[in-house]
Design a protein around this nucleic acid. Structure first.
Ligand code: MN
Ligand code: MN
Ligand code: ZN
Ligand code: ZN
Lengths: 148, 148
DNA sequence: TTGTTAATGACAATCGTTTTCAATAAGGAG
DNA sequence: CTCCTTATTGAAAACGATTGTCATTAACAA
C-alpha cells in the first residue's frame, strides 16, 4: 500500500509533469474519496488539508490528471464536470446510473456478456465510419431509490 | 407530410403549451435540420426566417420541447448542450460517435443484439439498485475519419 | 546550491445558460 | 368577433462554471 499505492506518482512524472505539493494533496483527496466529485467539492476537501490551495490549481490539476489517465471525467448534464479516481492504471470500464432528480451517480460493474457485444459493435463502427474509438460511456438516466 | 408531419403540434398543445409563432419556427428549423445543433446554432437558423426571435426564447423553447419528448438533448462534454429532433413520437434509440478533436457527433443505429443485452442489464440494475431507468445513452469517444 | 522554468494563486475575463420584468399575443369565454 | 386572462416573449442583467493573465514561487536538473 506504500509504493504500490502510489503508481500515479510515477505516471505524473512519466508524463513530464512536476510532482508538486498541491498536486499530491489533490490526488490524495481523490484517491481517498469514493464517488464522483465536482471541482468545487475537490477544492473544499483539499482546502481542509492544504488551505493555501487555489481553485484555479484544482481545475488545472484535474485536467492534468485526466490527460495522464489517472482520473476519469464525466459530464452528467448538470453543468458541472465530475472527476473520479481510477483504481487501476488500466482502463476500468464501468457504467453509470444517473438520477435526474438529485444528480446522484451510481457506479455499476461492466457485465461480461454486454461488454462483448459492445466491443463487437465498436469494431463495426470503427470499420464502417473509420472512427478510432478511445473510450466509451454507457449511462442510464432515471430516478434513484430515494427519489422515486 | 402535411398533417402527419406535424404530430409535434398536437404534442405541444397536449402538454398544455400554447402554439406560438416562435415555437413553430424553432421546431420547423429543428425538423428540417440534420445533426445535433447547439442553442446558438438554432438561434442563427431561426433568426434567418424569423429575425424577431430572441436567444432566451430559443433556450426556453428547447427545454420545453425536450420536456414534451419532441427533441432530444445531449451533452457531449464541450460545455454546450446539443439538440436533435426526434423523427418519431416513440423512443428512437441510437448511439453516438463523438470526435474529441472536432466535436463532430455521428449517429449510429442501435444493434438488435446489443439492444437486447443492454435491456437485460437494465432490468438487472432496476432490481439491484431500485433505480427507475427512463432512458439510456451509449457513446463512443475518439477521433473521426477526418481528424485521425 | 543554483538557475531555469513549470507551476501556483489571486483576480479578471469568458461563455453558456438562467432570471427578471415590462410588453405582447394565444386562445377560451361570452 | 371581441374581450380578458395569463402564458409567452425579448432585452438586459445576473449567474455559475471554467479559463486566461500575470507576477511570485518552488521543482528539480545540473
Ligand atoms: Mn464512475
Ligand atoms: Mn443523435
Ligand atoms: Zn435521486
Ligand atoms: Zn473529428
Amino acid at each position: 500500500m506504500q509504493g504500490r499505492g502510489r503508481w500515479f506518482h510515477g505516471r505524473i512524472r512519466g508524463c513530464g509533469y512536476r510532482l508538486t505539493l498541491p498536486r499530491m494533496k489533490i490526488v490524495e483527496v481523490l484517491n481517498s474519496s469514493k464517488g464522483h466529485l465536482s471541482a468545487e467539492e475537490v477544492f473544499l476537501k483539499v482546502h481542509q488539508i492544504y488551505p493555501a490551495v487555489g481553485l484555479t490549481t484544482i481545475y488545472r490539476t484535474l485536467e492534468m490528471l485526466v490527460a495522464s489517465g489517472i482520473v476519469g471525467k464525466i459530464n452528467a448534464g448538470d453543468g458541472k464536470a465530475r472527476y473520479e479516481f481510477k483504481k487501476t492504471p488500466e482502463e476500468d470500464p464501468h457504467f453509470h446510473l444517473i438520477c435526474k432528480k438529485c444528480g446522484n451517480i451510481i457506479n455499476v460493474e461492466a457485465n461480461k456478456e454486454l461488454d462483448k457485444h459492445i466491443n463487437k459493435v465498436k469494431e463495426e463502427y470503427i470499420k464502417n465510419y473509420e472512427f478510432k474509438v478511445d473510450n466509451l460511456q454507457l449511462r442510464f438516466y432515471g430516478l434513484c431509490k430515494n427519489c422515486k
